[in-house]
């Protein structure tokens, strides 16, 4: 079933929509949650909550890309879980991702504006557009899909440390781009 038909089922309030979404995108959502949280039970719960949240948001929302829409919900639910449970549990995937993202945070020396996530995403999208296709794909696969550095290294046919170095350069490049815009978080 294609995405348009699945979205039509949501609009018709047909519960088959959830089953179809789960069948088509269950593995995709689970992979993101697992990459980010690294705890099986919590990833399962996030994916279940994703179906509920999607049911609540469509309608009225009409997603342009159902896949990206679901991915965002999983990511948001994953970080919510991380925020609420961080005192009790250690989520390795998220800890590593956040520590790496610390390299992208612009310095506060040259501040012109303090931005929110929505505005920040505009700047990040602009920066991603300026990158070569492979660098753009690598950054998104690491920090949006949460793919492991070693997996990406194997996909590119290079070693893990070389990939880690490449990621470091990308993060520094993003920080430089945000600094240039005078953006602060």
């Amino acid at each position: 079933m294609d995405d348009k038909q699945i979205i039509d089922l949501y609009f018709a309030r047909n519960e088959q929509a959830i089953a179809e979404t789960e069948q088509k995108y269950g593995r995709f959502c689970w992979r993101i949650a697992m990459n980010v949280l690294d705890v099986w039970e919590d990833a399962e719960e996030c994916v279940s909550d994703t179906w509920l949240s999607t049911w609540g948001q469509i309608p009225p929302t009409v997603p342009q890309s159902l896949k990206a829409f679901l991915g965002r919900i999983v990511r948001n639910l994953s970080i919510s879980r991380f925020r609420s449970m961080r005192a009790k549990k250690r989520y390795n995937g998220m800890e590593v991702l956040l520590s790496e993202l610390g390299d992208c945070v612009p310095s506060s020396a040259n501040v012109e504006q303090t931005v929110e996530a929505k505005e920040l995403s505009g700047y990040i999208s602009e920066w991603l557009d300026s990158l070569p296709a492979e660098d753009c794909a690598l950054f998104v696969r690491r920090y949006w899909f949460g793919d492991a550095v070693q997996d990406l290294a194997e996909r590119c046919g290079i070693t893990g440390p070389q990939m880690a170095q490449r990621m470091l350069r990308l993060r520094k490049s993003l920080r430089a781009a945000l600094n240039q815009k005078g953006v602060a978080l």
């Binding site: 993202l101 992208c104 995403s121 920090y143 949006w144 978080l185």
Partner: peptide
């Protein structure tokens, strides 16, 4: 870092 995560989520 979490704000950066949220920013990347919304690309």
């Amino acid at each position: 870092e979490e704000l950066m995560y949220d920013g990347i989520t919304e690309i």
